[in-house]
Amino acid sequence: MTGRITLRPGTPADADVVGRVFLACWHVSYADLLSPAALARYDEAGARALWRRVLTGHPDGTLVADLPGDAGVRGVVRFGPDPDDPDAGHVFSLYVHPDGQGLGLGGRLLGAAVDRLRAAGHDAATLWVFAANASARAFYARHGFTPDGTTRIEPEYAEPELRLRRPL
């Protein structure tokens, strides 16, 4: 299936569909991880607005994954310089719609983001993951990301997160 996946830069015109991908992931992937209040943080209008801001403000650091036919955009990755480490790049978010998971979209998106961070001269890539998200942690481990010992709890989510890092 990976040969039929098209990766391309995200544009503001993708905001609606990327917002739907994000929202589906938010409610399915985090249903057992986040509180109902945290899950309710995003609705359809809020997700659209979030991704409209991202896709307008950071178009060179966002890629979407298109599937052929009517499936369309089923994944998105956002990346750029790590705000906490000037030598590292950072994967800010990676979302694959639940109906597109298992098709190689996440791996392709993550690989492309890592390649672009390396090409930009970064010596490592970082990202944050919820500590309790075992499937995401396993996915990132398969792609060379390991915990670097840094943790945080953001007030709006109230769940422990681990920072993962991999050399580039």
Rank of each mutant, 00 (worst) to 15 (best):
D16F: 05
L127V: 06
V76G: 03
A112C: 15
R142N: 11
D87L: 11
P83H: 15
F130V: 13
A15P: 00
A132E: 15
R165C: 01
G111Q: 02
E44V: 11
T126H: 10
E161N: 01
D99T: 15
M1Q: 12
P160D: 08
L164H: 01
V21L: 07
D43R: 09
A132Y: 05
A136V: 08
G102F: 08
P83L: 14
D43T: 10
V73R: 00
T56P: 00
H27F: 04
G80T: 14
L168A: 10
G57D: 13
R48F: 12
H97M: 05
D99G: 08
H58Q: 14
N133I: 05
P12N: 06
R20M: 07
W128P: 01
R142M: 11
A47P: 00
D32M: 05
D148W: 00
F79R: 01
G75H: 05
L39S: 02
A138C: 13
A24G: 04
V73Y: 01
G104V: 07
L50P: 04
I153G: 00
D70Q: 14
R74W: 06
H97K: 09
A112Q: 12
A40V: 09
W51G: 02
G149K: 08
P86S: 14
G111S: 10
S35E: 06
T56G: 08
F145Q: 01
F130T: 05
A124G: 10
T6H: 14
P147G: 14
V17P: 01
G111W: 04
G46C: 03
A45L: 12
T126R: 04
H58F: 13
F22H: 06
R53A: 13
D87S: 14
A24K: 02
V91L: 13
Y30P: 04
D99S: 15
V28L: 08
D43E: 05
P81K: 08
A113L: 07
A138G: 12
R118C: 06
L39E: 05
D115R: 13
G19L: 00
V73G: 03
W128I: 10
P59F: 02
G10R: 00
T2V: 12
Q101F: 14
E44S: 12
V96E: 01
G149E: 14
A120G: 10
G121H: 10
R53L: 08
P98Q: 12
G69H: 11
E44K: 00
H143Q: 15
D32L: 07
T150N: 09
